[in-house]
Design a protein around this nucleic acid. Structure first.
Lengths: 146, 146
DNA sequence: CTAGCTATATATAACAA
DNA sequence: TTTGTTATATATAGCTA
């Protein structure tokens, strides 16, 4: 789509990589907008440049709503895949919530470390049961990663 | 880019809207992939069709990592915008966590309703202080919405 | 970096299967 | 729904300012 055909691999020249990033990023967002309007759909697009700058676009529904929907789907997939699901009962749900509560308690004194949250992740893996608990779990996982 | 120029507005014919959705969706994902590779960037793309079907694509970093980054940025923006931020102190942080803890307690007996979480949102709005607390807040908000 | 300017490479609208 | 063909509309690579 230009004077010359380009191979899809990292553009070596820093300057032209930057220019291409800017142009294609705008093109991608415009395409996303068009798809959303033409076909009554919702589109969320997040782009992070090599230097860490963030660009986002959403159309149709709000970004938050689209991301929620995505996460809900992921949570459901997880539920479907978990073979131990059926063997877990309300007690493990309760245990999960108690573990979270405990963690909140620690957060109050501001002593939460990444390692601490990682170990929580391990505990939660075995404590998961109902979908609601799974959601809390996923959210806390994300919290610990950022 | 076809036999005829099309206006960017909802395609009325259901059948051609569907065909266009399929083709442009694939095109958008391919463009996202190319941008990511050509310019060393990370791209997350989530598309929800009019019938509610979800399609997603990510490249560079994982979807989870990209979404985390996005949310972190939003949380920071929120912090920057909040004029009352500077007047809030550690106590409000603690209050926030206690409110969350209380909510978790309720969740244990499985009596959480949307209304209940909505009122929590209101309480949290005034209790927010540090970034960490903000993150928990945003996550709980999302939890209540889905 | 950011903004045009073409010449070309691509995407895709309409149609068919 | 998805796939393939072909004529056109667009996007954009390489330059320039």
């Amino acid at each position: 789509m230009g004077r010359r055909k380009v191979e899809i691999k990292r553009i070596e020249n820093k300057s032209s990589r930057q220019v291409t990033f800017c142009k294609r990023r705008n093109g991608l967002m415009e395409k996303a907008r068009q798809l959303s309007i033409l076909c009554e759909s919702s589109v969320a697009l997040i782009i992070i440049s090599a230097t860490g700058r963030l660009y986002s676009f959403s159309s149709g529904d709000s970004m938050a709503k689209i991301l929620s929907r995505y996460e809900l789907e992921q949570a459901d997939d997880l539920k479907t895949l978990d073979l131990e699901e059926k063997t877990l009962n309300y007690l493990s749900h309760k245990e999960l919530l108690e573990t979270i509560q405990c963690k909140i308690e620690e957060a109050k004194s501001d002593n939460v470390s990444i390692d601490c949250l990682k170990s929580l992740e391990e505990q939660l893996k075995t404590a998961l049961s109902v979908t609601r608990a799974r959601k809390v779990y996923m959210l806390l996982l994300r919290y610990s990663v950022t």
